[in-house]
Amino acid sequence: MGEERWCLVVSGQEAEERRRRLLEAGLLDRRYRPRQEGGTVLLPLTDEFPGAVRREFEAVPERPNLPRHEIVGGIAIMQENDPAGAGRVLTSRPSLHTVLFPETPVEGEYRTRRFAVLAGVPATRTRVTEYGLRFDVDLSLAYFSARLSTERQRILAAMEKGERVLDMFAGVGPFAITLARKADLVVAVDINPAAVHLLVGNITLNRMNNVVPVLADAGHLPRYGFRPFDRVVMNLPMAAPRYLPEAAALCRDGGTIHLYALQEREGEHLPLIRGVTRGEVLERRVRTYSPGKWHAVYDITLER
């Protein structure tokens, strides 16, 4: 079948999170394909590891040297304006239909970017499949990050059934619709009309009847008279911290706020958090954003 390697045997539910952690630690051997064995997933390791066992794996076929890019559904987003490299990316992945280059950073009230088409079909719209859910996305109209898929699953795993959830910056609905699998109610808010239009379509696409889309400025939400929520998601990394007082006003005592923020030092937003709660705060690094700056999440237990 292949070559025998050390591997870690994990359940299917935890496979993606464990794969990511091994990758970050440099312990995942990317030369070999992970594989399923019964209800478990076998993750090949670069070396022996506590709890590791020996199994056979197939080697990953060598791929051409491709420029760095991010995959969103059928679209690849390049980091460099490199049409020749875009052509190689397009031909290397049959599932792709378009390769884009962002001409602007994420900007403005609606968090959008302008793109140039480097290869393939001139389009910014695509469908993303994530853990059995489907999301229609238009990258020119609403922000979407596939890199937060494991974060969405992490929060879903931490939830109790029947929670009331508020997604303050919902975009096209990846957090809201994912968490609706356990929630009693999810109120999904965004200020961008195009994002809310896509969100409504994605609610229908995934047959969710417990997600309520709201077109509104998150800063105005406390005046709408909502009953306190058990969990509040704040995924607006460049601006979410300034909305923390509103999030605290909307969250029940003992509830949880997930604050996503960009920062340049550990605990950068703790003073602001301590202004609204005495509760437990857990800080995690999600991913690198730029040199010296990273995307962090603070899991906050609200205690007034």
Rank of each mutant, 00 (worst) to 15 (best):
H197L: 13
R134W: 11
T124H: 08
F229N: 02
R181Q: 15
V187F: 02
L205V: 05
S145N: 15
L198F: 13
A194P: 02
A188S: 08
T204F: 13
E160Y: 03
N192P: 07
L156W: 01
V137N: 03
E160D: 14
V233L: 14
R152A: 08
H220T: 15
P237Q: 11
F169D: 05
D138T: 11
V232R: 02
Y224P: 06
D138E: 14
A119F: 05
F175K: 01
M234C: 11
A240D: 04
T126S: 14
G225A: 13
R152H: 07
T204S: 14
R164F: 07
V187I: 12
R147I: 12
I155L: 09
L133F: 12
L198Q: 06
V137S: 08
L141A: 15
V232P: 01
F135W: 10
P122R: 08
R231K: 15
L198Y: 14
A216Q: 08
A180M: 04
A170S: 15
V165D: 05
V117G: 05
L179T: 07
G173H: 05
L118F: 12
V211T: 04
I191F: 09
P122H: 04
L166H: 01
N235W: 01
P122Q: 07
G225L: 08
F226P: 01
G171T: 04
R227I: 11
K161Q: 12
P122W: 06
N192H: 07
G132C: 12
K182A: 14
R223Y: 12
T124Q: 09
F175G: 06
N202F: 07
A183W: 05
G219T: 14
F226I: 04
R181T: 09
M238T: 10
R231C: 09
P213C: 06
R164G: 00
V200P: 00
A170E: 04
A157D: 14
L215K: 11
A183P: 00
R231E: 01
V137D: 07
A180I: 01
A194F: 09
M159Q: 11
E130K: 05
L236D: 03
M208Y: 03
A142I: 10
R227P: 12
I203H: 05
A119T: 06
D217G: 05
V186N: 10
A240M: 07
R231G: 03
P222M: 06
V196D: 00
E160V: 10
A183D: 04
D230I: 03
V214W: 02
A158W: 01
R231W: 09
M238V: 06
I177K: 02
M238F: 10
G219E: 14
P213N: 06
V187T: 08
P222K: 03
V172Y: 00
I155K: 01
G173K: 02
G173N: 09
V117K: 05
V189R: 05
A239L: 13
V196H: 00
P222I: 10
F175N: 03
P222Y: 08
L198T: 06
I203Q: 05
H220R: 15
V137P: 08
A180C: 04
L215M: 13
S145E: 05
V117T: 15
A123R: 14
I203Y: 03
L156H: 01
T129C: 08
R164N: 13
L118I: 10
E130W: 03
F229P: 03
L205E: 12
